[in-house]
Amino acid sequence: MKNSKLRKSYEKPAFQVFITIWTTFCVLFLLIPLTITIINSFKSHDEIMTSIFAWTKTGAGKNFVENYKMALLGTDIKIGLYKPFLRTILLCIIGAIGNVALGSVLAYQFTYKEFPFKEGLFMMFIAVMLLPGIMGMPTLVPLIKIKLNLGNSMFGYLLPTYAGGQVTTLFLFRTFFGQQPKSVYESAQIEGANDLFIYMRITLPLAFAIILYQAVNAFSSVYNDYLWPSLLWMANQDMHTVTLVLRSNSDTWKVDSYGAIYAMYILSSIPLIFTSAISMKYFSGGDFASGMKL
């Protein structure tokens, strides 16, 4: 009697078996795309054309070198990932730093200070969320390319990204700054610290975790971004980011270097491995807003 009472309904073996099978099935299925990518990056082009699942027969090592070398360095006519990588990572880092810097300053002001027109200004920042990204595109593209002539510069991409991103960061940080212990803040004020000091020495260190989280978020969202770089730089090969290169190479390399294409996908995941690792270290458990692709 005691046993059966303790046994919850969902602990029936049949049910447990069912959910185990289902979750395993899901996991396996979800790992298929990744598996094919890894496997095929070790195969030569012809082998891939024959069968997508088979392991390589012609020597994994040799194919590995060939494919990854082409993916990274490219050839005379093909573009390797090497330069776009560096370019994109630089773009992502600057994007992340700018986003976090702007957002944290704004959040600081709105959390700790009272000033005239505070509500009005806050509304002004919030209202931007009413505007879907797509809405400004037809004007933004000629604005950046023609009127401001930033079409060939990193900042042509970054400035609009900052403009929208700072709002999301503002929201996120406001909640977290608000949770910081007020006592520290108050005692610093009594000691006569000015705002800059408090911001740099107290707020930022205390909020390090969430700042890192948002920086990683901003980094990945720039890294993954396909639409905006495509609108700006499609015609300008020297500015292509990793996403654009992936896209265009997938079309042109299909003819004779399928293996290199898959190698390319693997290589392009490396920065995201780092970002995921960082975020997982700080936030495992799925508490808030995590679990989204980082």
Partner: peptide, 29 residues
Amino acid sequence: TLLFIPGVIPGIAGMLIWREGIFSNSGGV
């Protein structure tokens, strides 16, 4: 933990893998 892994592939790469490896009419899954 395992499910974190596919999340590491950039979004566009994911789409392309679906197009090439899964939907492909010459040997796709």
